[in-house]
């Protein structure tokens, strides 16, 4: 049994009119079940409106499911009693780097989570030191967050979550507002945390390039899980992905086109190196 378990999740956004009557319901998730193993790196892909962000917010009790249950380390998220334990266990990083940094100085922001948890002062400092080290932002610890680049801000936000010592981190499109450099920076940091600290990562994104190195890729569409497997398995189904309005990495697309033109290539080529090797083998 995994650290994150979603059982038959349903979520409705309900719009109320002025008299507080239900005006309109919008089903964002309809029956999502997912079991995520501790220590794994799972990416959730989906187009706008696929329900992936809603799914992320259900993971640490920011939204409560309309029906179904989320278990984080066997605690129910809609259980008042465990709400804070759930949030301690599953940290969350949001899309907009500016709107999630609370402190006026980098190190103070990283300390915000532990402060809220009532961690003793000396231990807060230890945790802050370690977290900043882990995301490689120690050099900026005394700076104002306003002077950092987007990628750096997002790394500070990740450090802020790390300082709470969570067992898994949910990242809700952490790179959507960043430039390519910042994006690479953040993705590298997340991978390092996953490998070195053994933290379970749930990365929600719509950039294909970011999910290539994941252990598992889940594709969502219309509030349901439509594909689930290793990156190789998922990306070998190019036509299906296109149906869900998702692009495949350029190399994969090229390999797919070559294959359809009659070349004998394996399915699910994800990196340029792989394709080069395959082609070199063919030519020699």
């Amino acid at each position: 049994m995994g650290i994150i378990r979603a059982v038959n999740l349903i979520f409705d956004y309900i719009r109320h009119d002025e008299e507080n009557n239900k005006e309109e319901t919008n089903r964002a998730l309809s029956g999502v079940s997912l079991d995520i193993e501790e220590g794994s790196f799972v990416a959730i892909l989906g187009h706008n409106g696929s329900g992936k962000s809603t799914f992320a917010k259900l993971m640490n009790g920011i939204l409560m499911p309309s029906d179904g249950t989320v278990y984080i380390a066997d605690m129910k998220t809609n259980d008042e009693e465990h709400l804070w334990d759930v949030r301690k266990t599953a940290g969350m990083v949001f899309q907009n780097p500016d709107n999630q940094i609370i402190g006026n100085v980098v190190e103070e922001d990283v300390g915000f989570g532990p402060e809220n948890m009532g961690v003793p002062t000396e231990e807060i400092w230890e945790r802050v030191d370690r977290s900043l080290e882990a995301v490689g932002m120690t050099a900026y610890r005394l700076q104002s967050p306003n002077k950092l680049s987007g990628g750096q801000k997002q790394r500070v936000a990740i450090a802020g979550v790390m300082a709470m010592k969570p067992r898994c981190i949910v990242l809700d499109e952490p790179t959507a507002m960043l430039d390519p450099n910042g994006r690479a920076e953040v993705i590298k940091t997340i991978h390092e945390l996953n490998k070195q600290e053994g933290i379970t990562v749930l990365l929600i994104t719509h950039y294909m390039e970011e999910v290539i190195d994941a252990d598992r890729v889940v594709v969502m569409d219309g509030g349901q899980v439509v594909m689930d497997g290793t990156p190789k398995e998922v990306f070998s189904r190019v036509n299906e992905l296109k149906k869900y309005r998702l692009d495949v990495p350029q190399v994969t697309e090229l390999a797919d086109e070559l294959k359809q033109a009659g070349m004998d290539l394996p399915d699910g080529i994800l990196t340029i190196e792989e394709l080069v090797d395959e082609l070199a083998a063919k030519l020699s």
């Binding site: 190190e107 402060e115 003793p120 002062t121």
Partner: peptide
């Protein structure tokens, strides 16, 4: 957004809070 981020980081008012720089 900020309120959501603060809640996600366990903020629940001043009670039981410790200080990083007392």
């Amino acid at each position: 957004d900020l309120a959501m981020a603060m809640e996600a980081r366990c903020y629940r008012g001043g009670d039981g809070r410790t200080k990083m720089k007392p």
